[in-house]
Write a protein that binds this DNA or RNA. Structure first.
Length: 331
DNA sequence: AAGTCGTGGGC
DNA sequence: TGCCCAAGACT
């Protein structure tokens, strides 16, 4: 992994922090290209702090959980103001976007603080090693106790960075969510979950609620010069600060055909292009995409040429809409 | 403290 | 195919 320091090398706090923010609820494979892009475009925390927020949101577009990007930028500016990353857990924890996990991860990996960062991997490993059968999230205190006990081992305390990353690697490659490779696990003999034959079913989790469906209508409006109408979403909340095709607020009830004209950004000969579906964390979104071409666009928002839409901070669902619109022959 | 907040890959 | 999930934070 590109953010991991080689043996003997000192970890760079900026790179450790950047990678840890990106890795929150996000797979390594998804993060790597974004991490490389950010290092190229923003080689230092000062460079990131000096960037426009639009540039940061654009670079983050597609990675999801966009509050991370907003907090990333705010954190870079705070660190630049401070002069350097804090080298204490409390100092790190006070920065925007850095919670208990990330403070511990940066503390251990970049500053050698003897602490065990508790992520999903560690929750799983610890739940199994100590055979914690209580379901998450209720079992978090017990997991924290177990993790701290593991971290109290002298060899762990001597190498906090290696110990933390070893736990990540153990969880990612051996102590996996399904079909754990207990036979080759270095902790097989010490694992209470293994001894009780319940390792693979741990950690238990409280069941999640079903995802409701929400319905949206978005409009692909092109002018005579081949420019598309876009707008920026409000800075906070869902997809905050990201760019989208115009349309009414998503709702539970499907949109009726006779409602569409009233919601359009301007009067035009609207044509139904099709449906885009996209799964989000707490609901499934179904977007009806409508398109029209007019001479001059008079509506709220801003205009961009079709061939530079890639440079905008469009979230994935909006890129799906763009892709659908471009499939259609220009009307 | 339970809900909110994205995405793409794996099974 | 539908569900689960992945180095969580914030409110």
């Amino acid at each position: 992994m590109p953010w991991r320091a080689r043996p003997g090398e000192l970890a760079d706090p900026y790179r450790v922090w950047l990678s840890e923010i990106m890795l929150q609820q996000t797979t390594v494979a998804a993060v790597i290209p974004y991490y490389e892009k950010f290092l190229t475009r923003f080689p230092s925390v000062q460079a990131l702090a000096a960037a426009e927020s639009e540039a940061v949101m654009q670079a983050w577009a597609g990675l999801g959980y966009y509050a991370r990007a907003r907090n990333l930028h705010a954190c870079a500016r705070a660190v630049t103001e401070l002069g350097a990353f804090p080298d204490t857990l409390d100092g790190l924890r006070a920065l925007p976007g850095i919670g208990p996990y990330t403070a511990a991860a940066v503390g251990a990996i970049a500053f050698g603080i003897p602490v065990v960062p508790i992520d999903g991997n560690v929750e799983r490993v610890v739940s199994r090693v100590f055979a914690i059968t209580e379901a998450l999230p209720g079992s978090k205190p017990a997991i924290a106790e177990g993790a701290a006990r593991l971290g109290d081992d002298p060899s762990a305390r001597a190498r906090p960075s290696d110990f933390a990353q070893s736990l990540f690697d153990l969880g990612a490659t051996i102590c996996t969510p399904t079909n754990p490779a207990c036979a080759i696990c270095p902790w097989m003999g010490d694992c209470a979950g293994r001894a009780q034959g319940i390792a693979a079913e741990l950690p238990r989790k409280t069941p999640k609620k079903a995802r409701p469906v929400r319905h949206g209508v978005h409009f692909w409006l092109v002018d005579a010069e081949g420019r598309v109408l876009l707008r920026t979403r409000p800075p906070k909340g869902l997809l905050g600060g990201m760019v989208e095709l115009p349309g009414p607020v998503w709702r539970a009830a499907p949109w009726q055909p006779d409602e569409v004209q009233d919601e359009a950004p301007m009067r035009a000969k609207w044509r139904h292009l099709g449906e885009v579906t996209h799964g989000l964390t707490h609901f499934e979104l179904r977007i009806q995409l409508h398109a029209a071409r007019v001479d001059v666009i008079q509506a709220e928002g801003f205009l961009r040429l079709i061939n530079v839409l890639d440079d905008e901070a469009l979230p994935s669902m909006m890129r799906k809409c763009v892709a659908l619109a471009l499939l259609e022959p220009p009307g």
